[in-house]
């Protein structure tokens, strides 16, 4: 089994990072690695808001949008 490579971008920030994950890795796995709590963010996968249980595919663009703002 080959690894998959995804690009992660935090909305509102400029830089992107690439991540290598095992096959069958889900968005939830990625969030865990990044230290994000799903309660505090919305995830867009290739432009679409999706559930964290979706499996990632090679070449995915994952955007992370923080929603907890306070005030």
């Amino acid at each position: 089994m080959t690894h998959i490579k995804v690009t992660v971008k935090h909305v509102g920030k400029k830089h992107k990072r690439e991540f290598r994950l095992g096959p069958h890795a889900t968005i939830a796995d990625l969030l865990k690695e990044l230290g994000h709590n799903r309660e505090t963010i919305v995830v867009r996968r290739n432009g679409k808001i999706v559930v964290e249980e979706e499996c990632l595919a090679d070449g995915d663009l994952i955007e992370i949008l923080p929603i907890v703002t306070g005030g």
Binding site: G12, I49, P66, V68, T69, G70, G71
Partner: peptide, 23 residues
């Protein structure tokens, strides 16, 4: 909170998503 955020985003409402500097 997440469902309110999703409601605003999925409806395409114009919202200000920033963190208050004093929190």
């Amino acid at each position: 909170e997440k469902e309110v955020a999703l409601y605003a985003l999925l409806r395409g409402l114009e919202v200000h998503l920033a963190v208050c500097p004093y929190v």
